[in-house]
Amino acid sequence: MQRVDIDFNSDPDDMAWHGLIETRLMPLAQAAGLGDLEVFGLQLALVEAVNNIIEHAYALEPGLPIAISGECCADALRYQLRDQGRPMPLPLPSGEPAATDAAGGRGWQIIRAGFPDVHYERREGLNLLTLSRPVPTA
């Protein structure tokens, strides 16, 4: 099993963390045999999940901790996002497509398109969002 951990601070005006996701976490997906478009979809889904943390859990406040662990097992690729912000309202959004003329509301559609298995729990003041998808078997 391969595992990678990254952490950074929330900052609604910064995009340096995009580079961490791309260069540290996406190689797991590439090594799992996913194609370029699939890897792009996963990267985008992780960006949307972090956007949600920054915007909703942390209400755009900078300097608050976000951590992501990625691991690739024999049959699944899994990323867990952790933050100390407000709990996520339940149930989680279904990811139904937004109206085509809607200004927003596409984040969860993108997250669920990349990761069919989404699990959320609140534990000891932490939000734990686990995003998983199967990987090609040899």
């Binding site: 949307e48 003329d101 200004a103 927003g104 596409r106 993108i110």
Partner: peptide, 16 residues
């Protein structure tokens, strides 16, 4: 090379 849902919202707002 990269756009998220916030970026999509920019072009949707432009279209409107």
């Amino acid at each position: 090379t990269f756009m998220d849902s916030s970026g999509l919202a920019v072009v949707v707002a432009g279209l409107q």
